[in-house]
Amino acid sequence: PKDQAKKEIEKALRNGDEEKAKRLAKKYGISDDDWKELKKRVS
């Protein structure tokens, strides 16, 4: 599910692991808009 994916990506971003977050986003098909939203929430 997308919500689970977003949680994992957000966690990776919080850990400062943007490479992992990007890989997860690609793997789960997270859209650019969702990606920006996640980045905003974390920063």
Rank of each mutant, 00 (worst) to 15 (best):
K2V: 13
Y28H: 12
K27G: 04
K36V: 12
R14F: 05
N15M: 13
K26S: 09
G29T: 03
E19G: 07
K2E: 11
E10S: 05
D3F: 11
K26Y: 06
K22F: 04
I9T: 01
W35V: 08
P1Y: 11
K7L: 13
A5M: 11
K22T: 06
E37L: 05
A5S: 05
A5V: 12
A25F: 02
A5K: 07
K11H: 14
D17G: 02
E37W: 04
R23N: 11
R14G: 04
D34H: 03
E18W: 12
A5G: 09
G16N: 07
K36D: 15
D33F: 07
E19N: 08
P1V: 15
L24R: 01
L13W: 02
V42S: 07
V42Y: 07
A5T: 04
A25R: 06
N15G: 09
P1T: 13
K7V: 11
K7A: 14
K11L: 13
K40E: 15
S31R: 02
E37P: 00
K20Y: 14
K27E: 15
D32P: 07
K7Y: 08
K2P: 10
D32N: 07
K27T: 06
K11M: 14
A21D: 00
E19I: 08
L38M: 12
K11Y: 06
D34W: 08
S43D: 14
K26M: 10
K39P: 02
D17C: 05
D3L: 10
K20M: 14
E18A: 06
R41Y: 04
K27Q: 14
G29I: 03
P1Q: 14
P1R: 12
D3R: 09
K39L: 15
D32I: 09
K7C: 09
G16P: 01
P1I: 15
L13A: 01
A12I: 06
K26W: 04
K20G: 13
R41H: 10
E37A: 08
K20F: 13
K2S: 14
K36S: 09
A12S: 04
K40P: 02
K11A: 15
K36E: 15
I9G: 00
K26P: 02
S31H: 04
K11Q: 15
E10T: 07
E10W: 04
Q4I: 12
R41W: 04
S43K: 12
E18C: 08
K11R: 13
R41F: 05
R14C: 08
A25D: 01
A21K: 00
R41D: 06
E19K: 10
D33Y: 06
D34N: 03
E18S: 06
Y28D: 02
V42H: 05
K36C: 13
S43Y: 09
S31G: 06
K39N: 08
A21H: 00
K11W: 05
G29W: 03
E8Y: 05
R41S: 11
I30T: 02
E8V: 05
Y28M: 09
R14N: 04
I9K: 00
K27R: 09
D17I: 01
D17V: 01
K22M: 10
S31P: 05
K22C: 10
K11E: 15
L24S: 01
V42Q: 05
L38D: 01
A12G: 01
A12Y: 06
G29P: 02
V42G: 03
E37Y: 04
D32S: 07
G16M: 04
K40D: 15
D34L: 06
K20Q: 13
G29R: 05
I9L: 03
N15W: 06
A25Y: 02
L24T: 02
D3Y: 11
E8W: 08
L13G: 00
D17E: 10
D34F: 05
K39S: 05
N15V: 10
I30D: 01
E18M: 12
K6T: 10
K39T: 08
K22H: 09
K7H: 12
R41C: 06
L38S: 02
K11T: 13
I30F: 10
I30W: 09
L13T: 00
K7I: 13
Q4Y: 11
A21E: 00
K36M: 13
Y28V: 06
K40L: 07
D33L: 08
G29D: 12
A21I: 01
L24G: 00
L38N: 01
L13Y: 02
L38T: 03
D3W: 13
K26L: 11
K22W: 06
R23H: 11
E10G: 03
L24K: 01
A25N: 01
S31M: 04
E10L: 15
G29Q: 11
P1G: 14
Y28R: 02
K20T: 14
R14I: 08
K26H: 10
K6N: 07
K6Q: 09
L24N: 01
N15C: 11
D33A: 12
I9Q: 00
W35N: 01
K7D: 11
K7W: 10
Q4D: 12
Q4W: 15
L24M: 05
Q4F: 14
K20A: 14
G29H: 08
I9M: 03
D3V: 09
K20H: 14
R14A: 08
D34S: 03
A5W: 14
A5R: 08
A25S: 04
D17F: 10
E10M: 14
S43C: 07
K20N: 09
A25K: 12
K2N: 14
R23M: 13
K27W: 10
D33C: 04
K22A: 10
S31C: 03
G29K: 08
A12H: 09
E37D: 10
G16S: 03
Q4S: 11
L24Q: 01
W35H: 01
K2Y: 13
K27C: 14
K2D: 13
L13N: 00
S31K: 03
K36T: 10
L24V: 03
A21Y: 00
K6S: 08
G16H: 07
L13V: 02
E18Y: 14
E8G: 03
W35D: 00
P1C: 12
S43T: 11
D33P: 04
A12L: 13
K6Y: 15
A25G: 04
D32W: 14
D17K: 04
K7Q: 12
